[in-house]
Design a protein around this nucleic acid. Structure first.
Lengths: 266, 266
DNA sequence: AGCAGAAATCCGATATTTCGGACATTGATC
DNA sequence: GATCAATGTCCGAAATATCGGATTTCTGCT
């Protein structure tokens, strides 16, 4: 109820910039600032931060100084831009280590990426969106970093078809926003198709999709289930669509294996 | 200059708790709070946070609410403790990906931990202290998490002997605080010994120490050097002291190999 | 050199947040 | 069931951090 004072939540969804109105707490401004950098995924100049977050310039300067001193932010290059600093990594590591499932998942994801050599990920739901929690790039050169912590519509992903496993058609309709069935390129995912994929995935114990978000990419995912059999996360590979079929099958086996271990674990 | 208002810096070194005096900015209180959780490396109850950071109780409640809402913190279990939340992981990942050397180092550390099966680390200096930046546990059960982002006296570590490589005896004396030559168990590292280790390490291209911080642990480290040949980081293994000699030699070769790649890279 | 525009700093006033302490709630112990 | 302790909420007042705008410094360009 406090942060909303600064950001108009209604305006949220779209390109995340807030129009500040009144005077706000330092904390709320800092939260907006960090969130902005995260969405940007790149260093930003202070003036731009001020504009894009709707924070008065003098305030941003003041806060950035404080944050740089605390190593939450770092001044980059000599171009006067700032980005996240080492403290965030330390705190983030503490978080990862404190969550049992994620700590174990890290092992599996690293192992998969190392042995198979393709990009492996660990994904979960965050509200009604899909989220990459862990990402370990394979040996390929490109696609170095992925979108850790960036929310994506559930129907855009292979894993999404597993993560809503336990819901009936009506529940899903209520849960996933209408507009999320439209892909970035404008194509539309028919609901029946989605439900069919889902049922097939539950049956087979894995799911594979090609050319969803990106035409030339194939995703394969296996479900991590809790003791009640509910899918609480997925492990997946992201590979070029032209990857050899046998290799893909090997990957799926590896995924099922890893996902199985994590399902046991908790 | 702002954060100091809250924390008495002189009191620092010891058990990190500050005695708040005057009214402080929310930001400064939050920084103290996060730093406290990081040192603690465990969830804490709000009342304890208030006591240990010297922040008024009502203020902590207020701030924690804001931070939980932003996912910077998370309420754990049902015992009312709080700890870092997922947002810290996302911001931390952004940081890691934004620093070239660290991003590359992550590959190497993961690879080493996977292939050799022992805990691998990537370390750097932070001021006049040694710091584990990346840690990847091996296949052994114990010693799951390490002290990422926790400052350690340079002489306590194998890597430390490489990281001050470029300094002369006088520089080192000026750089490393006197008291840092005393190990946690009270033993004292003679300066000549340290300098000898250093010279030998530079000569050999790696360093190995046993029973420094912990009697039953051996550390092996290889230097990552910049274009001027200066040691800017190290890669290392942390293994039980009774590890087979041949295995240790193989590890050292693997370390030199990885460190060499990173030295090339930048 | 000189100029224009942007980046960064400075400063005082006021709207606001922090803080203390009182009050409510929960839970454990005897 | 009563007592004590710990946890969490609420509220008004006072201290002060945020903000606007003016000033200064920097940078690139003609």
């Amino acid at each position: 109820m406090t942060a909303e004072r600064v950001m108009d939540k209604a305006a949220g969804q779209a390109m995340g910039q807030a129009t500040a109105t009144a005077r706000a707490r330092g904390i709320d401004r800092v939260i907006a600032l960090m969130e902005h950098l995260h969405r940007l995924r790149a260093p930003a100049r202070i003036a731009d931060i001020a504009r894009d977050t709707g924070t008065p310039r003098s305030t941003v300067y003041e806060l950035v100084n404080t944050l740089v001193e605390a190593r939450w932010l770092e001044t980059r290059d000599e171009d006067g831009t700032v980005f996240f600093g080492p403290a965030m990594h330390y705190y983030g590591s503490d978080y990862l280590n404190s969550v049992d499932l994620i700590r174990k998942a890290r092992r599996e994801v690293n192992h998969l990426a190392e042995v198979i050599g393709e990009t492996a990920q660990f994904c979960m739901l965050d509200g009604n969106k899909y989220l990459v929690v862990l990402n370990e790039p394979g040996r390929r050169m490109f696609r170095i970093s992925s979108d850790i912590g960036i929310k994506v519509p559930i129907p855009w992903t292979a894993s999404g078809r597993l993560l809503v496993d336990h819901m009936g058609p009506d529940e899903i309709r209520a849960f996933i926003p209408e507009e999320d069935f439209t892909l970035p390129d404008g194509r539309r995912i028919v609901e029946e198709e989605f439900l069919r994929d889902m049922a097939a995935a539950r049956e087979a114990g894995y799911v594979r999709t090609t050319g969803l978000v990106d035409r030339f990419t194939t995703c394969m995912a296996a479900p991590v289930r809790d003791t009640q059999g509910r899918c609480i996360a997925t492990i997946c590979f992201v590979v070029p669509a032209d990857t050899d079929a046998d290799e893909q099958n090997a990957m799926i086996e590896a995924l099922k294996d890893s996902a199985g271990k994590l399902s046991m674990a908790r």
